[in-house]
Design a protein around this nucleic acid. Structure first.
Length: 210
DNA sequence: TGCCAGGCCGGGT
DNA sequence: ACCCGGCATGGC
């Protein structure tokens, strides 16, 4: 799988994910981007910034209706407002809203905690662990599954954990590598591997050739 | 105009 | 243990 990584890197160049100014912004983005295009998430985050509301304490104290209004462009705004509320509540209770205190804990324990927060599943948890807290967990998203499936590397029925192990067992456990690899898979997916659309013939990165 | 986007949950088999 | 409908906005 390392060979594929270097091919992707040569083709698309370094992605330098996650696009955010702070770890907390990564966490908020991870929740807002659930089944949602990143462009819409950017708008919502822009509105949160404009309202000077991008902190655990502010979101915790904010009226939920106000929060819904700010994140509206990200879609599913009622569920996501509730999810953000539940997440910052957890952050306040467990870490007084302090990201550094959070990052000091072992990754696997954090993953358990995150998964226990309503609205945070495996991908969102791993995105937070990897991109906000620099913990070595490989992120598996819809693009990753689709790309592997269309290239015959998996059958299609595999669970999240199986696909994650597929990567983590065959790669050095390096945070920088995991970040860049997932970002590159998304870059490939956005360009050549959209849902319910045949694999683009012009895709320069079919795995079986080269 | 319909389809799609960096999921997750709850209820039903 | 899966499978499905619901959740909502904005670009192409």
């Amino acid at each position: 799988m390392l060979a594929l990584f270097y091919r992707l890197l040569r083709h698309f160049g370094p992605q330098r994910w996650w696009p955010a100014d702070t770890p907390f912004e990564v966490m908020v983005g991870a929740i807002l981007t659930q089944n949602t295009s990143w462009m819409n998430v950017e708008r919502a985050i822009g509105l949160l910034k404009g309202a000077k509301a991008l902190s655990p304490h502010k979101i915790d104290a904010m009226d939920i209706g106000t929060l819904e209004g700010l994140i509206r462009p990200a879609g599913f705004f009622r569920v996501k407002a509730a999810r953000l509320k539940a997440f910052v509540r957890y952050m306040m209770e467990a870490y007084l809203g302090n990201v550094d205190a959070m990052a000091a804990r072992p990754g696997w324990e954090l993953r358990e905690e995150l998964m226990a927060v309503p609205g945070i599943g495996e991908e969102t948890a791993d995105s937070i662990l990897l991109y906000a807290l620099d913990k070595p967990f490989f992120v598996v998203d819809a693009y990753t599954k689709r790309i592997l499936e269309r290239n015959g590397l998996i059958r299609g029925g595999e669970s999240y954990g199986e696909i994650q192990r597929f990567f983590m067992d065959s790669l050095p456990g390096d945070v920088g590598l995991f970040k860049e690899y997932h970002a590159l898979l998304v870059a490939l997916g956005k360009t050549y591997c959209r849902a319910r659309r045949p694999l683009c013939d012009s895709c320069p990165l079919r795995f079986e050739d080269g």
